[in-house]
Design a protein around this nucleic acid. Structure first.
Lengths: 229, 229
DNA sequence: ACAAAAGTGTTCAGCGTACACCCATGC
DNA sequence: GCATGGGTGTACGCTGAACACTTTTGT
């Protein structure tokens, strides 16, 4: 412990709510703690800041260690600083939410004292350590309001995807069904998508067309925003 | 200095961007530092956390000291943690933005080592200490996006106000003119306002009617949000 | 009577919303 | 041939946007 503390700021940490989209559901990355405190409990990937490291840098370091992804979408959620959130002593944490693309990452446990790292459906989470449930809830809330005003699929979908897939993402995040035709119309009229000549090879019956995001438009909408309904 | 540190967390602070609306302009509260570091420079009201104090509590303590207001609208803006932001040593700060109502506050310098506290027009700010300009810019950005989705006048306008006054607030925040008739229509059809039988006693020619906010509707719109244009 | 500010109503276009049918494929 | 999922177009209503004239009062 003494050695561990040497290069560490012991009252400041970053925690990441990592969202991924797989098997038609929205998932969150958790790890099982291998050491005390809270050994055996599931927790968000996170950790103390090193000296000379920014909160966001710490978050990226942790994400690289857990997912292997270096260029990742990251946004600050909020500060969490309840006095008793980390009982051994007082620690402020900055919560981030991150979006990662399936296929682009591979989960490891490098850099975390952990016995296991895996995805959970966002609505079937286990009990979480400390105040991590609260961080997840805040991040989910932010994701839901984000999705209505900015495009988000680029960070979560594979490079080529079908419109029904994208719609499912939106339905899962918003937790309600959307009208197929209106969803298509909206996406297409924003010029957000480029239709490819390929079709979904996975699907059996009537294969859906694949699309890519038009990154130019995508980035413009990220800064400018839009209104989905 | 030794005594000052005893009850203080020396690497964590809160800083407040206090917005007020007066003389038809949006203003920000600054104080002139009375001691080093940065003696003589203008800065945002802020300070180190005391032990056992939350970031938001520190912000409220500082606001009470500077404005005398206890129930104040306060929202987290972001964490600012550049390594060199506070040259003597490393300090993270949580930026807040606050909205206060003219007439409800009185400026003091209690609790700040200051020679002067006063309002500046938001677009005529002096040079600011440290990274406070960046905090102001981020807060302004947040205010501008807030105003499009939530009602904000309640915290900034006097209890009774005219529609042209409210419109001016919106125009100043958004930095562009709005159509008088459409603005009225929008505000009225949201049931946000209660028309009074009084007229603006200050105005000379054709006095405008005074309004109050319907707090029930106001609070509902705060949580539910709306879309201004 | 003229200038300054406040109040009011209408028209148009675009978009969000609801909704039904045909097509392709695998079993 | 039937079930499953994908693709497409239309009609209506609301609301955001543009816009001009009248009323009041102080000078």
């Amino acid at each position: 412990m003494a050695n561990w503390l040497k290069n560490t700021i012991k009252n400041a940490s970053s925690d990441c709510v990592v969202f991924g989209f797989e098997d038609f559901s929205l998932k969150i990355l958790l790890y099982k703690r291998g050491i005390n405190p809270c050994k055996g409990a599931w927790a968000l990937p996170g950790g103390f800041l090193k000296k000379g490291e920014l909160f966001e840098e710490a978050a990226r370091r942790i994400l690289k260690a857990t997912t292997g992804v270096t260029d990742i979408y990251l946004e600050e959620v909020a500060v969490f600083d309840q006095l008793d959130r980390f009982p051994p002593w007082r620690v402020f944490t900055v919560g981030y939410f991150a979006l990662v693309k399936p296929g682009k990452y591979k989960i490891t446990a490098t850099g975390l004292d952990s016995t296991e790292v895996r995805w959970f459906k966002f609505n079937e989470l286990p009990e979480l350590a400390w105040d991590h449930k609260q961080i997840v809830d805040t991040a989910l809330h932010k994701l839901r309001s984000l999705v209505l005003h900015k495009p988000i699929g680029l960070e979560l979908m594979p490079n080529k995807f079908t419109l029904p897939q994208l719609q499912t993402l939106y339905e899962v995040v918003l937790d309600r069904p959307l009208d197929r035709r209106n969803f298509r119309k909206k996406m297409i009229q924003m010029n957000l998508l480029k239709k490819l000549d390929e079709r979904d090879p996975n699907n059996k019956t009537n294969a859906a067309y694949l699309y890519k995001f038009d990154k130019r438009v995508y980035n413009k909408l990220i800064t400018k925003g839009f209104i989905l309904e």
